[in-house]
Design a protein around this nucleic acid. Structure first.
Lengths: 203, 203, 203, 203
DNA sequence: TATGAATGAGTCTTCATTCAT
DNA sequence: GATGAATGAAGACTCATTCAT
């Protein structure tokens, strides 16, 4: 990757991170085409030339931005997962919980982050490196599903979670396609019909 | 009045269509950012200035390209739907059928079209006009699902189809996220667990 | 001028005039660079190609527009001159009258027309044909000054009028150069010091 | 911060200046519409992209060009003012002097500069920033009038100078409007009738 | 006689990237 | 190691004018 782009200095490392963060924010806010050298440098308050000094190309910077955005997204979700209390939940309550944890959409920023999540999924398709990154995010998301399910007193198997997530993603996609649709609502309703298939942990 | 964007002549209509087709192809092949005046003009073997003569702006041309790509996609699916014979099908056979009809992925072109379908879904989010377009495509896709289900001797209700499509879309998204994943296979497997919920037409 | 551009038809004549009027309006509203084939055609509700059919070139159309704008300006001034009552006027009253007649600036349209008057004066410099046109306008303006002076009981000689107009124009130029300046006020004040040199008609 | 439009280097400063000079020359020679990125770059023997590197927009470059042209004009006038000997002058001699100092028109270049001076005055009207610039030039011109008057043994008050300049400007405008008119001659004659109003310094 | 269609040339501006320092 | 400076290529779009019909 970085043959001569040392940046092993503490300072270099810090600036690199600042650049990635700036790029990540732009990515989430305005989509892939918002990530430009100039825009990133400006937002990070770092000289333009640093963007090509620390990253081989715009694509390289973008990769990092995608990873960063994914981690940011994951961190937010993780935070909400931690807050989930351990207690048995009925089907309807569980659907609601899953929605609020994985598809928070109250603020504009949250909605933006959600849209960005799906943009990243789809647009990574044309780049193997990004695909790998995206797969990792998906795995973590799956683990977090297991965690929430467990805390809610349900047994969660691999295929079961896959199916759950497919339903969720499909519902989101459908909602995004409909102008002004209420994404969390759509997810909750879609979930309503599947959650009951999940066996309780101790029957 | 309409001193431009006329294209009322047969010839004008033809050129306009050629431009849209070229833009649509570029969209499918290389994504949204591949649709540029220059690229479209070059592919259509039409002078650069004609691209702004026939379309008010690049956005306008892009809208048309999205619509075109959607119709192309739909036409292909429709063709496969027409070929579906009327006969009762077991769960496994139905899952296979749905997959082959809606998620054909044998040639590179077919896989490209499939990816593009999902790109369009997600990227239209930032533009209301495109969202509207995409919603229409989704509706047709839903109708075609009903048709295939009916031909297979199943009763298809609105929510049932929504759920079916959500599963499919979620599975595709998951597969696209996984490098080298077999999309049709993923869909078929995901479908395997839902199809049996669909009641037969005459039990 | 128009070797093959017949347009001797009544209809042709009418359309030509409509085009000139549209171009003239644009000229007054937005300056020389606002006069474009497209803009003129659009405003006149006449096909684009007619603009080059009835006029050899954009320059030709522009000449006509300048003449039209000049006539329009003159017509407005003339109208105000007609309304001037015959009566002896003191110096101050005369300065006020001249200002209101020749430098009406109450509405935005009037101010625009005034600015345009001076734009035309200056920009015609680079084109002999336009210069000739502008000279004519100036002569009429001089005659109208004589008329107003006469109606006010003053004797008006050629040099006297020239001097009067020079003062006016100079004051306008100075006012235009000052942001937010009150043009009529500037003219009135400048006039205050000269008008008294004009001998009364019957001493 | 200032990742562009830097030009803090001597070299950068030089190139920036070259661009402004080129734009200024074009402005004087061909009017406002002659100032284009391409034309400026070509004349300055500098790459096209440099024009937008050193100036945020064409408007920005144009502002600089207007300022430059104004300074050039002022410098020339100042030069002629410096050369004015201190000595009492009769009315006719003073009129001649003022004309030769402020309205030099012997060479084609001088005449061009003169025309440009008035173009700038009028065309700046539609832009507040340019208006401000033009007001400054006017002030300096007024000061220089005072200087010449003083050197000629006359007392010069503010209103007196304003009136003088108005007469001059009005005369120039009238002359410019007349094809082939002798601008200096017109100014001299117009001045002939005003200069005598200027009281001598030591009566 | 008109005009819809068409386009080459040119408009301003942005951008990823290189390079001298 | 860092970066200000620089630029070729391309971006979207406008325009005066021509021409076939």
């Amino acid at each position: 990757m970085s043959q001569m782009t040392a940046a092993t200095t503490p300072k270099g490392e810090r600036r690199r991170a600042a650049l990635v963060a700036a790029a990540g924010e732009l990515l989430v806010e305005g989509g892939f085409e918002s990530v430009r050298h100039r825009a990133v440098a400006h937002r990070a308050h770092i000289p333009l030339a640093a963007t090509t000094y620390y990253f081989e190309s715009l694509g390289d910077l973008l990769s990092n931005a995608v990873a960063y955005a994914g981690e940011l997204d994951l961190a937010a979700v993780r935070g909400r997962v931690e807050a989930v209390s351990r207690r048995k939940r009925g089907d309807s309550a569980l659907a609601k919980l899953l929605t609020s944890v994985f598809f928070a959409c109250d603020t504009a920023a949250e909605r933006g982050a959600l849209v960005s999540r799906y943009e990243r999924m789809v647009l990574c398709t044309r780049d193997p490196e990004l695909t790998r990154l995206q797969a990792q995010v998906r795995n973590v998301l799956a683990e977090l599903h297991v965690e929430v399910l467990t805390r809610s007193g349900r047994r969660a198997t691999g295929p079961g979670v896959d199916r759950l997530m497919a339903i969720e993603d499909g519902a989101v996609l459908a909602a995004l396609t409909t102008h002004g649709a209420d994404v969390p609502r759509a997810v909750r309703e879609a979930l309503g019909t599947v959650v009951d298939d999940l066996a309780p942990l101790h029957p």
